[in-house]
Write a protein that binds this DNA or RNA. Structure first.
Lengths: 230, 230
DNA sequence: GGTCATGTGGAGCTAGTGCTCCATTTAGGG
DNA sequence: CCCTAAATGGAGCACTAGCTCCACATGACC
């Protein structure tokens, strides 16, 4: 790759990062090119699809996301680590309008981005397990709930403008309180899980993992029947 | 008003209702006119601003919203009424993509719509008061939290496609659990409020009412200083 | 320093938006 | 049944979007 090409590529990514952060993913391709000081053609040649541009722009942020997970798993207090992770990630959504959307979608062609997301998803299972084993996270918390949390927080961030930070904190505060095992029951510790689940059977079931994955692909239709005939 | 004009007006409102429900408020004016079988000019003459069209299209839904509040206030069990209201309204969001947005915005020029919203807001204060007095709703629940809930649920509905119903129920389940006074503390009843608030001081503060109102106006900037000099 | 593959920018295409203007049609009171 | 005020619809305006094409320029290897 020629030096000037590399330089332009970097300028495009930088411009995309800035604009996406401030205005969300809806920013037009033209505007990114203009802001980067390059022609539209240059941008389009480098990033033929929007997903690739998004992937390049948010790769560093996604690394930050993974780091938040590493920190959470390294926390000696599993429940504290769990809470910190949720708070940190929702805070990242508040600070970056584009990342808010990135966390509730999936971009299949941006492989580097998605592989980081997958790592976090895998580790999230471990984080949940530790917090539940410690008797602090309710047994009815499901892996899929992370996506629900991120979508809910995205809604608050997208709609509440300058109040986003306060409103988001409030939502996260409510949710974490709901995920925690009641203080009154905490003494029973680890083996209280079954009890807790039974006592709070009113909690509606989580969506299936595949349903949430399909949602993140922005597929608006039900999955096709595996029937071969029309 | 001539009979054919009235007929066309009704067809426009009906078309808007259908399209907004299925695809959200982003549907173009042209498309509404086409779907209604009238010219663009006819639509524009009847509804010079988008807000007026939205107002006309969602007036009946807003009446349903008010009815949900009436039913909640009529419930002999204040806590049950409170929960039913939240569940019903979030269910209305799931069933109608346009209404989802209507509930997180305000449309100052659509007076009939907004006056119904205001009534509900006023009654919501009463609903909260009753549920708190009954010792079932935590004292730290604030009036403004309704908007936060609606925005959060809107985020889930907007992003989770066919899984919206399940995901929304899950979110609402978590939230209601968080709003409830702990079963362990419930015995203390009404005068436990102060205790409950103190014991759960970790809950972040709610956004101010004016901040949320400004957010619903979709004002993306901080309020201007009341300073007269530039 | 010459050469050419590599890279560039913007004019130009299509498509869709909100909105205006005006020649034509039509309802409905007399 | 007729006549006019009321109502209509679509062509036309200015704008923005994504995306393609191609004449031109420039970096880097020899």
């Amino acid at each position: 790759m020629r030096a000037d090409a590399r330089r332009n590529r970097d300028r495009i990514v930088e411009a995309a990062r800035e604009l996406f952060t401030q205005h969300g993913l809806s920013v037009s391709t033209n505007e990114v090119a203009r802001h980067a000081g390059v022609g539209i053609a240059t941008l389009l040649r480098r990033f033929p699809t929007r997903d690739e541009l998004v992937g390049a722009a948010f790769f560093p942020k996604m690394t930050g996301y993974r780091d938040a997970m590493s920190a959470a798993l390294a926390d000696p207090d599993p429940w504290h680590g769990f809470c910190r992770f949720i708070e940190t990630v929702c805070g990242m959504q508040v600070a970056d309008l584009g990342f808010t959307e990135v966390l509730t979608r999936t971009f299949p062609t941006a492989r580097a981005l998605e592989s980081q997301r997958d790592e976090v998803a895998a580790d999230f299972g471990r984080l949940i397990g530790r917090a539940q084993a410690a008797g602090r996270l309710r047994a009815d918390f499901a892996h899929q709930d992370l996506v629900v949390i991120l979508m809910a927080n995205a809604g608050v961030v997208a709609s509440s403008g300058p109040a986003a930070e306060v409103a988001s904190r409030r939502l996260v505060g409510y949710l974490l309180r709901s995920f925690a095992v009641d203080a009154a029951h905490a003494a029973d510790a680890a083996d209280a899980d079954a009890d807790a689940a039974a006592a709070h059977a009113e909690l509606p079931p989580p969506p299936s993992r595949t349903a949430m994955y399909r949602a993140m692909l922005r597929l608006r239709t039900a999955p096709p029947e595996p029937d071969s005939s029309p």
